[in-house]
Design a protein around this nucleic acid. Structure first.
Length: 347
DNA sequence: AATGCCATCAACCGCATACTT
DNA sequence: GAAGTATGCGGTTGATGGCAT
């Protein structure tokens, strides 16, 4: 047996609300409150609407102090930061923005903010790709000069780089640590494809010697990457540390059989698009961090720890949220989150 | 002027959880 | 504790308006 319908569908009006309906609902709630029963409310005031519809209309449109549109830069930052931190918990995000509704924020994110960020990201990636091309040309010239001087054995010269695209011949794998869990990126397919997907944006020193010997402190593991999208991927991704005698990053152990990288992987194989978005947004900032400050003398922990993503979170806000939540007895958490509708501050 | 396409946003739907009996 | 019901949430849909052709 299915769920009992919340209202008589046949007898209920759907679609946009008329000004008369709005007026009825608003005046009733202002005088009497909701009475704690949304289902019964429309009958009381003679509205042919579903209780849920009334509730939504009130919360998203009729209740006092609602703001529509005109999101400020600061609000954008807050939304982005919280999205990175907690994902699409729109009601919680709305709680941090007095006068904003979850629906409004959700729409704003989906229609504007997301595109704005992705556009920004694309722009930066293009700039980075351009920079890499310049860098690679320089590398090729350097290499040419060296080979002329050192008379390198022909088999070494002719060795085909693992990454067929020259752009990726020097890209090290980022170190993955437990903080990935924080972002809910526990799906191996998502994880793997996102790493690959985002490698394009990671830039390192223009010095090819450093590129060849990018130091990493830790080995990292991506266990059980056995998804179809990664047919022959090895189970363990090892990045050799400087302490290791070889001191060399060895990409040939990774993603074996993906000579067409990155084009094969640029198509995200992400189960949860929201995680992908959040991750992309986070990686965008990480890219910037790495490009700006992490290009030289970076340690693995500095340059590639996913924990660095915390830097792009609007820290006071998120930490306040977490602190508030953690500081509240479990019984009151719900009340805390419900305060959003009235822009109330927890003491 | 007519048409098609696209962006926006209000509203709906279904699911999960909380609450009540 | 189980079943029924109400509420809240997030994903999706559909109506609408603006713009390009």
């Amino acid at each position: 047996m299915g769920r009992a319908p919340c209202c008589d569908k046949a007898n209920v009006k759907k679609g946009p609300w008329s000004p008369e309906e709005d007026a009825k609902l608003k005046s009733y709630i202002e005088q009497h409150g909701t009475g704690g029963n949304w289902i019964a409310l429309p009958q009381k005031i003679g509205l042919k609407r579903c209780g849920k519809s009334c509730r939504l209309r009130w919360l998203n449109y009729l209740r006092p102090n609602i703001k529509h549109g005109g999101f400020s830069e600061e609000e954008d930052n807050i939304i982005c930061s919280l999205y990175v931190s907690i994902g699409s918990r729109w009601s919680i995000i709305a709680a941090q923005l007095p006068g904003r509704t979850d629906n409004d924020i959700k729409n704003y994110w989906n229609t504007k903010l997301k595109k704005k960020l992705l556009g920004k990201q694309r722009k930066e990636q293009q700039a980075q790709a351009q920079a890499r091309r310049v860098s690679n040309n320089q590398q090729k010239q350097d290499l040419k000069r060296e080979t002329e001087n050192l008379v390198v054995a022909s088999e070494v010269i002719n060795q085909v780089p693992y990454w067929s695209s020259s752009e990726f011949s020097s890209v090290p794998m980022p170190v993955v640590n437990a903080s990935f869990q924080h972002y809910g990126l526990n799906n191996q397919t998502s994880l793997g494809s996102m790493i690959v997907n985002k490698l394009e944006g990671i830039t390192f020193s223009n010095d090819h010697h450093q590129q060849q010997q990018q130091p990493y402190a830790n080995a990292c593991e991506i266990p059980s990457l056995q998804d179809q999208a990664f047919p022959t991927m090895v189970n363990q991704v090892t990045v050799v540390s400087n302490e290791n005698n070889s001191g060399t990053y060895q990409p040939s152990n990774i993603f074996q059989g993906f000579e067409n990288f990155p084009s094969d992987f640029c198509e995200p194989v992400c189960v949860n698009p929201q995680q992908m978005e959040a991750f992309n947004y986070g990686m965008e900032s990480m890219d910037m961090t790495m490009s700006n400050g992490g290009s030289t003398n970076t340690t693995s922990t500095e340059s590639t720890s996913w924990g660095d993503m915390s830097s792009l979170v609007y820290s006071p806000l998120v930490s306040d949220y977490e602190r508030c939540r953690q500081g509240i007895p479990q019984d009151h958490v719900v009340a805390f989150e419900e305060c959003k509708y009235f822009g109330m501050q927890m003491q």
